[in-house]
């Protein structure tokens, strides 16, 4: 079953056409790796899906329904959780407060934004979550994020996406800056999420990771999707040459033939 479909998304920043024309679909319980060199437009594509900025043109469908994603809140409400490449945590807040930022557990809900935080629940849920993710067992939920290492921060951001059991989880270079153990934690998490029936869009520069967890590969170059292949039908070297653009014509033909 298809959960997300993008059709002809376009986005320019002034004269830079970061996204020329991107279309693809993501199925339920599927891990799709989005590959491409620096500046290919991967982050731009996922920012459009997660509501960071509107696209200039193109449509987005969630479970077959055409949707308009005008804000990050819209995307979250549609079940799309994103972990951005640039830090997605507030360093001056505690781990617990970051985990629930924007979705704080409160008492007296009718008070709206003035509602008191349910601090006990916040702490307990945060501690439980950190334990469940297992990639950051030593962390105190009350510690400020500014005191954490880059890898620890990444782990927190990932735990947060997991917390809200989104339909689609988008990870923009999640294993950047991570140590060996944390990297395995992330990859394990991706598999877990798939097993639970969610879909993952994974952006990474590490092709080995792709072959460990992805079902399908999409390659972008200069704002366009240039190849789409299932992992079973391809190999590491082929993918690498598509990304770098070596012998593009032959590969494109091969892709189209499918």
């Amino acid at each position: 079953m298809e959960v997300l479909r993008l059709q002809n998304l376009q986005k320019s920043f002034g004269s830079v056409r970061a996204l020329k024309c991107a279309s693809f679909a993501l199925n339920e319980g599927e891990v799709v790796a989005l590959l491409g060199d620096n500046g290919a437009g991967k982050s731009t594509l996922i920012k459009a899906i997660s509501g960071v900025f509107p696209v200039d043109r193109g449509d987005i469908y969630v479970r077959g329904q055409k949707v308009s994603i005008r804000s990050t809140r819209d995307a979250m409400d549609l079940g799309i959780e994103t972990i951005h490449q640039d830090t997605s945590l507030a360093p001056d807040l505690s781990i617990a407060r970051n985990l629930f930022l924007g979705r704080e557990p409160v008492n007296l809900k009718w008070l709206g934004v003035f509602a008191p935080l349910d601090l006990a629940k916040l702490r307990d849920a945060a501690a439980a979550l950190l334990k469940r993710v297992g990639i950051s067992k030593k962390l105190d939920a009350d510690a400020l994020v500014s005191t954490l290492s880059g890898g620890e921060r990444q782990s927190i951001a990932i735990s947060r996406a997991m917390q809200f059991a989104a339909k689609v989880i988008i990870l923009d270079e999640p294993t950047n800056n991570l140590g060996v153990e944390e990297t395995h934690g992330v990859l394990r998490f991706v598999k877990e999420v798939r097993a639970a029936g969610h879909s993952v869009l994974l952006i990474t520069h590490n092709i080995h990771h792709v072959f460990q967890v992805a079902d399908r590969i999409i390659v972008m170059r200069r704002g366009e999707i240039v190849a789409e292949q299932t992992v079973a039908d391809t190999d590491l070297l082929t993918v690498e040459s598509i990304i770098t653009g070596a012998d593009m014509s032959a590969l494109l033909k091969e892709t189209r033939a499918k």
Partner: peptide
């Protein structure tokens, strides 16, 4: 109360700390 105990205070600190992160969480 507002700054340290209410939901709004969490938002205020998050916005000042990392505005993009707060916006990305729907604040």
């Amino acid at each position: 109360y507002v700054l340290h105990y209410a939901k709004l205070g969490n938002w205020i600190s998050a916005i000042g700390s990392n505005r993009n992160a707060a916006v990305a969480r729907g604040v």
